[in-house]
Design a protein around this nucleic acid. Sequence first.
DNA 1: CAATTAGAGACTTTACATATCTATAATAGC
DNA 2: GCTATTATAGATATGTAAAGTCTCTAATTG
Lengths: 128, 128
Amino acid sequence: MKYSKATNYALHTMLFLAKEATNKPVGVQQLAEMQDVSPTYLSKILTKLVKEGMINSVSGANGGYTLSRNWEDISFLDIIHAIEGKSSLFDCCLYNDPKCVIKEVMLSAEETLENELRNRKISDLVKK
Amino acid sequence: MKYSKATNYALHTMLFLAKEATNKPVGVQQLAEMQDVSPTYLSKILTKLVKEGMINSVSGANGGYTLSRNWEDISFLDIIHAIEGKSSLFDCCLYNDPKCVIKEVMLSAEETLENELRNRKISDLVKK
DNA sequence: CAATTAGAGACTTTACATATCTATAATAGC
DNA sequence: GCTATTATAGATATGTAAAGTCTCTAATTG
């Protein structure tokens, strides 16, 4: 079980945009070079963030990506969910018992993880 | 990101053995049937638990698996680590910065998850 | 010795992450 | 309006790890 590289790229891109603190769009070319990943692939990842309303995209010359207006509220969990999806970490496929005690433990542990990630905002990492 | 099915099988097997509360070995055949998985595959998973000293195996007729002597101390985290390995959930491949703030957040979140799973023992689920 | 059971290793299959390629759409600057 | 630049979408390819199978070996019982 691992977080995907895509999540890593998304988090670092968000942090970079937050540090920039400018409204001028940053092109995927530049973002991709910094992270040593292909622009088309990164673009596909960032499109997910656009669809979740975390960043805005601007087509055309001098286009690129900018943070959305509410960016200071965006948590690690938001970004992770946008990339990895929101489905549970643990599937108890065993006879689909709704009262499976193992599932209960696993889901409650997952909840503590999510609470932690929900409390951590990208904007906290920017303030000096 | 998901926990593997193998982890699910391992957890359910441990819980079953704990509920049995007998020293008589339980064969992989029976354990596999209950969970609707092939015996050879489950055997491969259980061997990992044997190597970590969580269960004992007995070859030969009437053989099978029994809980180890210290089974009441075995946590969810122990079992998960035995199956999934102990490597971190998050690899920050980006220029390998040892002070990457994103990595710090992710690792500290992972630690809260592990603490939770460390405090949950299989034996807690058995007591009435 | 025969039956039963776990363990080990090679192999196959499946699923998903990680890309790549190409074509399309939008926008800026001229 | 034309051209260069940039994001988006879809199809396709590649790599890797999980999931599962098959076969042979080793240990134990009776």
